[in-house]
Design a protein around this nucleic acid. Structure first.
Lengths: 152, 152
DNA sequence: GTAGAACCTCAAGTCGACTTGAGGTCAAGG
DNA sequence: CCTTGACCTCAAGTCGACTTGAGGTTCTAC
């Protein structure tokens, strides 16, 4: 498969595939002229990468999950600890969600007069709610390259 | 209060306070010589900012929540929509957490042979799990300025 | 009156995960 | 044979939220 086919099948832009290769996350099995050739295995690999990313692992962490010989060698304790971390995050987000819901529905004239809101505020001020997530803005699906269409 | 007192009381580094002022998120009520003077109100404001950040709002979004006259003027539908967004995130994270937990405990020789894991993999590949969060690494509390100690 | 701590400004750097752009190469179709 | 378009490389840019550093000013204490 050449790069555009991988891009199409996986939904990962070609530029990203080159970037991943450079980082050692995927490998091409050769070249035809200048062009990379990929084995279909790369698709599974990309799925694994997507999963890792969705779970909150960095590309570097993901890279370390693949044994030098190639296929995944994932430390189960690492997974468990990520699960615990997610669990903590979930709890915080749940508290936030409930607080926001309440604040949205609360009939107090100003939010500052709502006890629920003030309680949340206190938690935020004390850092209990933790550092915020930095997520790619939800309203703007992705700048530039849209998935599955590497650009005409 | 001068900047270091605000920093101490709020846990927000002085550099960040200057940055926030520049962005229009907080205001100083004057200067003594060159030095900024803050009213105690700024502490509540900072708490509000922290809360907003924890809820996943960007600084720009937070800025828009304060009416030009000063105090918060928060659109309740905005809160509700953020609550819904958080709810979606929570559901995804919960799925991930459960998947990771299973994978961590699963006795299949390789993760690739575990059906639960493969199901998760499929979800990740199809984008169902959404774009990942970019959160400040949990193991590295924060580079540089530690809270409450602006540096000797 | 003078040292030095604390503050100031402004420009530039950082981090992660990519994207973009300029300029070059190559293979297949007409 | 020649065009064209898909691919290549490498450097630089982007985004958000800050931090860092150099170089300058000022308040406070001795």
């Amino acid at each position: 498969m050449d790069i555009s086919e991988v891009a199409q099948r996986s939904g990962v832009p070609a530029s990203t595939l080159r970037f991943y290769e450079e980082k050692g996350l995927i490998v091409s099995v050769g070249r035809r002229g200048l062009r990379r050739l990929f084995s279909p295995n790369v698709l599974e690999r990309l799925a694994l990468i997507a999963l890792g990313r969705a779970a909150g692992f960095s590309l570097d962490e993901i890279g370390r999950m693949f044994a030098p010989d190639g296929h995944p060698e994932i430390d189960r304790t690492l997974l468990a600890s990520k699960a615990r971390e997610l669990d903590r995050t979930i709890k915080k987000l749940t508290a936030m969600r409930d607080g926001l819901r309440h604040a949205a529905a609360c009939s107090a004239p100003s939010h500052m007069e709502c006890p629920t809101f003030r309680r949340l505020l206190g938690a935020a001020a004390s850092g209990t709610l933790g550092e915020p997530d930095r997520k790619t803005s939800p309203t703007k699906p992705r700048p530039g390259n849209t998935r599955r269409t590497p650009r005409p």
